[in-house]
């Protein structure tokens, strides 16, 4: 018999032209289930008008990002046990810094447009991936093998970033990390975007993006590395190399 917890889910609700409110639902859950499972159970057994995004249920699609007790989480891989306890109230809210479409669903269009603007790679050669194999262990012909990019485009980093909260034009952690992933030397055409007012220099080093990233992208480190690359590219321009 699996362990059973009684949880109260406090869900943010807002439909078009309505004031926001919170609805509460009391559920019996297995604490090893995920937050998304609990939200789905509310939809399945309590309120079919609840809107939320989800698809793959295994942290590949990046659709189910929400704020759980105020912190950005990919809910399909966040066990209930990790964020709450038996008898507690669990507050679920939509991501910040994106327009709310309905309830927990936000419009991610702005992020997707920015990712397109920086030509973010969906896949990349394994030889260029930052994974456990050092670059020296690959053979040149291994470049034919591709892997998915680490970034899920889930938007958690944009929601957590304090600068993204106040500056809509800021490219944001995920797009800047996507520029770093491509590199200034191989893609000098991205220099004006990275080196712009709303590019790499707008970051104020709060490191929240890395703290909430569910996919080891480590955007903060990439932004800092991109700064180094931008300075290098500018110096090369000055000295004509």
């Amino acid at each position: 018999m699996p362990e059973q917890w009684t949880l109260t889910l406090r869900l943010y609700r807002q439909k078009a032209n309505e004031a926001p409110r919170y609805d509460t639902f009391t559920l019996q859950v297995n604490p090893d289930e995920y937050v998304l499972d609990a939200v789905e159970r509310v939809w399945a057994f309590h309120d079919r008008s609840l809107c939320f995004r989800h698809a793959c249920h295994h942290s590949t699609c990046g659709a189910c990002g929400m704020r759980v007790n105020g912190v950005e989480k990919l809910t399909c891989i966040t066990p209930l046990r990790a964020v709450t306890q038996n008898g507690a109230v669990l507050t679920i809210e939509p991501l910040r810094n994106f327009p709310i479409v309905s309830d927990l669903v936000v419009d991610m269009g702005d992020l997707y447009r920015k990712m397109e603007r920086v030509n973010a790679r969906a896949v990349l050669p394994v030889t260029e991936a930052e994974i456990e194999h050092p670059a020296s262990t690959w053979n040149p012909e291994d470049a034919q093998y591709l892997r998915l990019s680490d970034c899920l485009e889930c938007g958690l980093c944009i929601s957590a970033c304090p600068v993204a909260a106040t500056t809509a034009a800021y490219l944001g952690p995920a797009p800047l990390a996507a520029i770093q992933d491509q590199g200034m030397r191989r893609h000098p055409e991205l220099l004006p975007l990275a080196d712009s007012e709303d590019g790499v220099w707008r970051c104020h080093s709060a490191f929240e993006c890395t703290a909430v990233c569910p996919s080891f992208v480590d955007p903060a480190r990439r932004i800092m590395d991109l700064r180094r690359q931008v300075v290098g590219a500018k110096l090369r321009q000055v000295f004509g190399k």
Binding site: F98, P99, I100, A168, A206
Partner: peptide, 23 residues
């Protein structure tokens, strides 16, 4: 519905709840 970035959200910069040492 309004949840977009805005300079009026400046006070959110100072909210430490749920944030990490970097913030």
């Amino acid at each position: 519905m309004n949840n977009q970035p805005s300079s009026r959200k400046l006070l959110t910069w100072f909210n430490p709840l749920g944030r990490n040492p970097g913030a």
